[in-house]
Design a protein around this nucleic acid. Structure first.
Lengths: 230, 230
DNA sequence: TTTTTAACTTGCGCCAGCGCAAAGACAAAA
DNA sequence: TTTTGTCTTTGCGCTGGCGCAAGTTAAAAA
């Protein structure tokens, strides 16, 4: 566990003396499947490092539609804005996709730690920067790419994050519904279903209930980069 | 000028001793209309505070299409990621929309300043956080709103940023082409043109060449929030 | 095993918005 | 004043993708 925190994006490169304080000031927090670590708009009082499980960052629109922003795996940081004024609200909701455990630090401790060890601030900024880049990429995709390309891109990304080599190709190694994919790529589950079926016909993927396996990654990449149109 | 830096989002709340160093370490930088402060992907070597002019942050897609991310006014900070490892590339391009002047600080000085004065780091994070929130809002809009709503929202935002009261209503006080609006709202200049004309027919706006004046702000808000469909 | 629940597929109709082309309207330069 | 370049409008055709409804499959619960 210490190992995981040491490698976490927020506390990497922290000197061992300060690191001891990091360990002292954390609060463990467990949330079961479909529960929430925090909701969009809540006062940003804690930053989290995920220890085990999977957590989905999402937004909910006024009319109830969901947008999935990202899926987190152990070692990743979320709610990092807590280092700022806790009057800021979290910009998104963090929901556990399975029983999950995380460590939490509150604003006061975070700031104290950051003052002792500037690299914590830099790490937090690095995190935010990475996220900004990702959001911009996604925005670009939403504006310029067809739905098909966006789905291809999401699958490639999930595969690189959760891919597991099996005999038929690369399996995305956790239950993933058509609706999940739709919420990540900004479309509907119907369109996702149709697209995946078409790809299966072409032998590019193999699909099942809550399961996607990529047989021809190269074909998907071509699609994502718009090198080929169907 | 000092006043402007004092109030700038990056250096506000900086103690007067460190502030003196802020002033010492800056480099003035002028760029004329259509010129660039930096391009997406360039090594992020400097952070800027705009003194005068207007600067557009944009992305260019592989096929040449532009996406406008935001428009900056004097006092605003851009290129703030320079505080991180300069190996990071700027996530977007900064182009002057008119002759513009800014002050720049390089990574080395920024870091030194941030170490002396933690509030600089906090300010930088605050900036990034505000930007993240904005990007998420925009992503939500792209996924869930109709083009009409998105245009309405962009106009409201521009009006709140640059609005000038005139007799007919609130004028967006700088030359703004249909193409500009399209790049901000993720659509085409044709659709923008049609939409604005329709709104003019309804008396909601008054438009001219590179000019938009909002006569019934309330009507636009209703549209943006989808309280009414045409 | 049967039942229930949730995920998925598929056909069909529809329309918002795109893309193009051609023409019109300004503004600045010559 | 005329010219030139840029910005804008508008008609027309087209289609990607949405939305719904009805049916199918598969897993989980009873």
């Amino acid at each position: 566990m210490q190992e995981l925190i040491r490698q976490s994006s927020l506390f990497k490169d922290v000197g061992s003396d300060v690191f001891a304080q990091v360990l002292e000031t954390c609060i463990p927090r467990s949330v079961e499947e479909d529960g929430f670590f925090f909701m969009q708009g809540d006062a940003a009082s804690h930053a989290f490092v995920l220890l085990e499980g999977r957590v989905k960052m999402l937004q909910i629109t006024p009319n109830g539609q969901q947008i999935t922003l990202r899926i987190l795996t152990p070692g990743q940081t979320y709610g990092g804005i807590a280092i700022l004024n806790p009057l800021e609200g979290y910009p998104a909701t963090a929901q556990a996709m399975e029983n999950s455990t995380a460590l939490a630090w509150d604003t006061a401790h975070l700031r104290k730690l950051a003052e002792m060890e500037p690299s914590i601030s830099l790490n937090a900024m690095q995190l935010m920067h990475a996220y900004i880049t990702e959001l911009q990429e996604r925005q670009k995709a939403l504006v310029t790419d067809r739905v098909e390309q966006r789905i291809a891109r999401i699958l490639m990304k999930l595969a690189s994050q959760y891919g597991k080599k099996v005999e038929e190709g690369v399996l995305i190694n956790f239950p993933l519904t058509r609706k999940d994919i739709a919420e990540m790529s900004g479309t509907t589950l119907f369109t996702v279903s149709r697209t995946l079926k078409e790809w299966e016909r072409q032998g590019m993927v193999k699909i099942g209930r809550e399961k996607v396996c990529i047989c021809k990654p190269h074909g998907l990449v071509s699609l994502a980069d718009d090198l080929v149109r169907r």
